[in-house]
Computed example of a mutant assay.
Amino acid sequence: MSRNADDLPVAAAPGDPSPPPGLLVAGCFDQPAGYRVDRPDGSASWLFTWTTHGLGHLRQGSAEARAGAGDLVVLAPGVRQRYGVAPGADRWRFWWAHCQARAGWLTWLRPYTVGDGMYAVTPVPGALHGRIEAALRRMRADARWTGTGLPPGPGPDGDLVAVAHGTAARELALGSLGEAVVLAAATARTAPPPPGTDPRVRQAQAVIAADPGAPHSVRSLAEGVALSPSRFAHLFTRQTGRSPMRALREARLRHAARLLESTDLSVERVAAASGFVSPFHFNRVFRERFGVPPGAYRAAASR
C-alpha cells in the first residue's frame, strides 16, 4: 500500500516506501531483534543513521557495515538497501533522517565511502557523542516547527517521527543534521589504506578529484600513471570496488551539485563544466543519483 511521510508514526516495515526526497523526515527508533527493512529499488532520498545503543547491520548493493554506538552510516538513494538489527544482537537504537543531502556534506563523507553509495563514518570520539545526539534532537524538534511562535523543545527520544513541511522547519532541521555530519566526519579516524594499495591508483584518484570536469578517460588516466588502459582499469577496480569511469562520474556529479548550490550557472553550463557532453544525459544521471532533476535540486537548495 502506498504511504506518504505523514503515515510513518512507527518504524518502517519491509516493503514500505521511503519518504520522498523533497521532505526531511526524522526520528529515533529502539528496535528489537528481528527488525529489518528491505528496499529492492533503494530509497528515493538519502538515509542518515546514528547508532546510540545495540548493533545495526546495513547493506547497500554489495557494500555493508555494522553500526555500533557512535557510528554514523549514510546511504545514498537509488541502490538496493537492507538494514536492521544485526544478527545476534538484541536491539538497535538509532537516530535517523531521510532527506536530500547537501552537496557540501559529501566532501566530508567521501573519505568514508564503502562503495555503492554507502558511507561509514567510524569511530567517532566518545567525547563528541553527546553533542552529536543533541544536534539530532534539535533536528527532530526543528522539523516539527510550524513557523509561528518559538520552535519546540527537543522532547523525549521516543519513537515520534517528525516531518518538516515548512521551509523554515526544513532549513533549521538540515542545519542541525549538517552539524552532526560535520562533527562526526571531521573527527572520526579514517582507516589507513589497505595493505598493498597501489600508489598509482591513489594518484589517479587525486587527478579525478582535482578536476572532475576535465576530459578524463581510462586511457588518459592510465597514461598519467604509466600503465596500459586494461591494466589500469583492472587495478583501479580491484582496489576501489568500482571502475575508473564510475568513480569519475560520481566525482562529476558531486561537482555539479556544488555548482548548482553555489552559482547561478544554467543547468547546461553546469553540465558542461562538470564534464558532461550531453545535457540530456546529465539530467538523467543526476536524477538517478540525487533523486531529483538538477533544476529541482537547485530550487530546494536555495530555499
Rank of each mutant, 00 (worst) to 15 (best):
A11S: 13
V292A: 04
R246W: 09
A162C: 09
R110H: 15
A186L: 15
G15V: 11
S62K: 14
D38V: 15
A120P: 05
W50I: 05
P40T: 06
G22A: 09
W96K: 00
A247G: 03
D38P: 00
R298L: 08
E261Q: 13
L259C: 01
L183C: 00
P87M: 12
D30G: 04
D71F: 04
E250N: 05
H234I: 00
Y35F: 15
P212E: 00
R242M: 14
T51Y: 01
L58V: 13
A188M: 04
Q100S: 15
S274D: 02
I208Q: 06
A33P: 01
W96M: 00
Q205S: 08
E223L: 12
C99Q: 03
S274E: 04
Q60E: 12
R36C: 13
R284E: 15
P195D: 12
R289A: 11
P9N: 10
L160I: 09
T113A: 15
V270G: 02
S45W: 08
L109M: 12
A173S: 09
H234W: 14
A300T: 05
P279C: 08
S278Y: 07
E223A: 15
C99T: 12
F282T: 02
R138D: 13
E250I: 00
G104V: 08
A247E: 06
A184L: 07
L259I: 05
R284Q: 14
F282R: 04
R144T: 10
G166T: 08
G61H: 04
A233C: 05
A169S: 10
D142L: 10
G126Y: 11
G88V: 09
A251T: 06
V182P: 00
A271L: 07
L23E: 00
V218L: 04
G88A: 13
E179R: 08
A63T: 01
S278A: 07
E179D: 15
G149N: 08
W145M: 02
L47W: 05
G126W: 11
H281R: 13
R254C: 01
G115N: 05
A135K: 05
W95F: 14
G88L: 07
M1G: 14
A162F: 04
Q239I: 08
F94V: 07
A273Y: 00
